[in-house]
Amino acid sequence: MGWGDGPLLPLFGIGGPFYLPLPCNHSDVYFVHERMTRQQVLDLYFLDARHKLVELAAFLDRAERATGKDDFRLQAFRAALSKLAGKKKHKARAVLLAFSDPTAKPVAKAPGKGAVGAFNGK
């Protein structure tokens, strides 16, 4: 099947309305495309990111309204949030590292099968 540069079909419920026809310089090295400008990134992702930020704020409000204490997950969450401010690069990596087990040695026995999303350092 062909996969041209024409307009997107609105497959899977996404596509057409969001499609940005971007300038591509693929005359010789075809896989290096021109990056989106900051304006284009904002046009494509701002509303989605805003929506996710409001959801985060509402989650914190909900957790703080509820009775009881913080646990290690909420503490890790706040530590991860602090990585978003400022101009440091690689924020996604910093957030993932904030939730990660920083230790190096294997544990004596698997404490079950699941992961909860944040390291319980105790």
Binding site: W3, G4, D5, L8, L11, F12, I14, G15, F18, Y19, L20, P21, L22, P23, C24, H26, Y30, F31, H33, E34, M36, L44
Partner: peptide
């Protein structure tokens, strides 16, 4: 294939997606 559409949305060319 949905991620291929995401690449296309950002201007990645067909050969790069392939």
């Amino acid at each position: 294939p949905k991620t291929a559409l995401e690449m296309k949305r950002r201007g990645h060319v067909a050969a790069a997606i392939d």
